[in-house]
């Protein structure tokens, strides 16, 4: 009997920190954000229920254009990252051998250890008007004057893809490493072309890795603030910037909270769709 109560006591002792964390830092704050987004300020300290801030979002083209643009660019960035990362993951998992292999894999991890701020700053130094690439182009005669490569969509896209590369490579490598080479050999023996092998053997096998990579990259890109702000300048029109502007600059928390709810819904919707389409469970995709 005594042992039972000891076991129970330890159970509740272990449960408390988790529950406190979840309730105080995740559940209540998210609910609070939802409530704040649904109220309208009448006078000091007096609020009433209202959909005003969602109406504002619908009626103001600037807001929903930014929202759509952020979503579309995040999807594009995810696909480009997947396309660029797949051959690298394949190289690491199947072609590189021994020491070489772990070295290449480590090199892929380096940017993860370095702050996103430093990486973005590096791109600024490379791409701006007085930057390294501009000087190089003038020196080689490819350009007659300084070239400004910052503050456009292609640069923002480059930065976003760069920032998320690792989160695609790692899940892809771990899925592909589990694949038996003889599957590919068998497909070739049976006369399949390279394209057919990729489409019918490799891709289906790699799908769990592809999905978890895409979900993580999409979420990180959607929530990114640094890269669009620093590389895209004032006109980068990223939705997180709108949230930040409403909260910090305009002090309009109700509007900012409404934007937050919208962004969170979009991100959850895409994650849910990704899991649904691939038939994976949330736990497996996130925990891997």
């Amino acid at each position: 009997m005594l042992r039972f109560s000891g076991k129970n006591l330890s159970f509740y002792l272990l449960l408390t920190p988790l529950l406190l964390t979840l309730v105080l830092l995740v559940i209540l704050p998210q609910l609070d954000m939802l409530i704040v987004s649904l109220r309208e300020r009448i006078s000091y300290g007096e609020y009433t229920f209202s959909l005003l801030h969602y109406q504002e979002f619908v009626n103001e083209p600037f807001y929903w254009n930014t929202f759509l643009r952020t979503a579309v660019m995040s999807i594009m960035a995810t696909l480009i990252t997947l396309l660029l990362a797949f051959p690298i993951a394949w190289y690491i998992a199947k072609i590189a051998q021994g020491r070489n292999k772990s070295l290449i894999f480590l090199a892929c991890l380096i940017p993860f250890w370095v702050s996103e701020l430093v990486r973005t700053y590096g791109w600024m130094i490379l791409l701006r008007e007085s930057g390294v690439i501009s000087v190089f182009l003038q020196w080689s005669g490819l350009a007659s004057g300084p070239v400004e490569m910052l503050y456009n969509d292609i640069t923002v896209m480059t930065g976003l893809v760069y920032a998320s590369m690792l989160f695609m490579v790692v899940p892809l490598v771990s899925t592909l490493e589990g694949m038996d080479d003889s599957l590919v050999e068998a497909a070739y023996d049976l006369g399949a072309s390279t394209f057919t092998v990729i489409r019918t053997v490799i891709l289906p096998y790699a799908m769990p890795g592809v999905i978890s990579g895409c979900i993580v990259v999409f979420m990180l890109t959607l929530g990114n603030y640094l890269t669009p702000t620093l590389l895209g300048g004032k006109d980068s029109l990223w939705f997180t910037e709108q949230i930040f502007t409403q909260f910090i600059t305009r002090f309009n928390w109700e509007q900012g909270a409404a934007f937050g709810v919208l962004l969170l819904s979009l991100s959850s919707l895409i994650v849910w769709l990704g899991l649904k389409l691939s038939g994976q469970s949330f736990k497996k995709a996130v925990a891997s």
Partner: peptide, 27 residues
């Protein structure tokens, strides 16, 4: 259910985690 809830912060964008904590504690 509790395990899934524990994983939740990994899929909430950092900015949103920030504003929700800010709005809650200021409230």
């Amino acid at each position: 259910v509790l395990y899934s809830l524990m994983l939740l912060p990994l899929v909430i964008p950092g900015v949103i985690l920030g504003i929700s904590v800010l709005s809650f504690s200021s409230g």
